Computed example of a mutant assay.
Amino acid sequence: MQNIAVITGASSGIGAATARRLAREGFHVVAAARRADRLEELVKEIGPAATAVECDITDDASVANLATVVAGLDGVLTLLVNNAGGARGLDPVATGSVDDWQWMYDVNVLGTLRVTKALLPALEQSGRGTIVTVGSTAAFTVYEGGGGYTAAKHAQEALVGTLRLELSGKPVRVTEIDPGMVRTDEFSLNRFAGDQSRADSIYDGVKEPLVADDIADCVAFMATRPHHVNIDKLVIRPLAQAAQHKVHREK
């Protein structure tokens, strides 16, 4: 039977690139996200190897529906890519927006929890399950203005590490990929509430930041290793970024 892969946040950026790549790897991909119109375009592009499911990972009923759709497909769920997430704002803690912090925790942490809980029984039943969670270098490094996002990503990393311990002895790999600077169409734009110039300034002078396909390539690599190989954590940055606070910018 065909292997099924579920990708959250698949309507754009890393999620969409990962769906395309995993379809080429032979998976039937379930592209899940809130924007149904974007998903339909993606599935049309990929073809019969893809299924679109409108899903809000902050809503229990929506995630339950995702699990029901997956259970009804002809195949075996062997891969979950927890990709949905995001950042809002760059305010210091002293003036941080509680609403923005709440949203980042709900999406990055509780969203990952909801989807993982819903699909874990099927992944375990497959006998060869893999969970890849797309985190961030913000999961282990803090920076000014990033308190809300780094707190959420630190919590998400703690969730992943705890899950790996709890699933020891069971046939489910728990892996994590933590990208540095990745230039996508929407991440920074969403962070700055649609301010294109402010979003673009993040990458000013940075030669060849990572792009969505770079991360999709890594996800595919991690997911297609022999099942006894568990890549706990993969940190990937562009060459121009030596560390969170050390970025070479050309003038």
Rank of each mutant, 00 (worst) to 15 (best):
C218V: 10
G147L: 12
S126A: 13
V70E: 02
K251C: 12
A152P: 03
V142M: 13
I7S: 04
A240D: 08
A52K: 07
M181Q: 10
K117T: 10
A223M: 06
F27V: 12
D56H: 04
A223N: 09
V182W: 02
V30M: 01
A64M: 14
G86C: 03
V174M: 08
A139C: 08
D213S: 14
E124D: 12
V6I: 00
D91H: 02
Y105Q: 15
E144H: 11
R198N: 06
L123W: 08
V142F: 15
G148V: 13
D37H: 05
R114F: 00
A61K: 06
G13V: 05
L77R: 04
T78S: 12
R38A: 08
C218E: 11
V76E: 13
R88T: 06
W103N: 01
G161V: 12
R21S: 14
R173K: 10
T116I: 07
F187R: 03
L66C: 06
L210I: 09
A52M: 11
V63S: 03
K233N: 11
A61W: 01
P92W: 09
E54Y: 06
P209D: 08
V211Y: 06
V29G: 15
R164N: 12
T8N: 01
I14N: 02
I14E: 04
S11I: 06
L80D: 04
Y105H: 15
V206K: 15
D200M: 00
A138C: 05
T137D: 13
E208F: 10
V247A: 12
R114V: 03
V132W: 03
A50V: 07
V211F: 08
L119W: 00
P209F: 00
R164Q: 15
A10S: 04
Q125V: 11
V109L: 15
M104N: 02
P92E: 15
V53T: 00
E40I: 15
M181K: 11
H154G: 04
G180C: 03
G205K: 03
A31K: 06
A33L: 03
I46P: 13
T130D: 10
Q241T: 06
D200E: 05
N190C: 03
F192M: 00
A118M: 04
K233L: 11
K44N: 14
R198I: 04
A158F: 14
T224Q: 14
Y149T: 02
L110Y: 15
A5L: 09
G86M: 01
M181N: 10
E208A: 06
A17F: 03
G111L: 03
L234P: 15
R191W: 01
A152K: 01
L73A: 03
L39N: 11
S188T: 10
P171W: 11
S126R: 14
V211S: 07
H28E: 04
T8H: 00
R249S: 05
H28G: 09
T141G: 13
P171D: 06
M181W: 11
T112W: 08
L113K: 07
V182L: 07
L119C: 01
E250I: 11
A17M: 05
G75P: 06
A122G: 14
V235M: 15
V247C: 14
L163C: 09
F192Y: 14
R183A: 12
S201N: 06
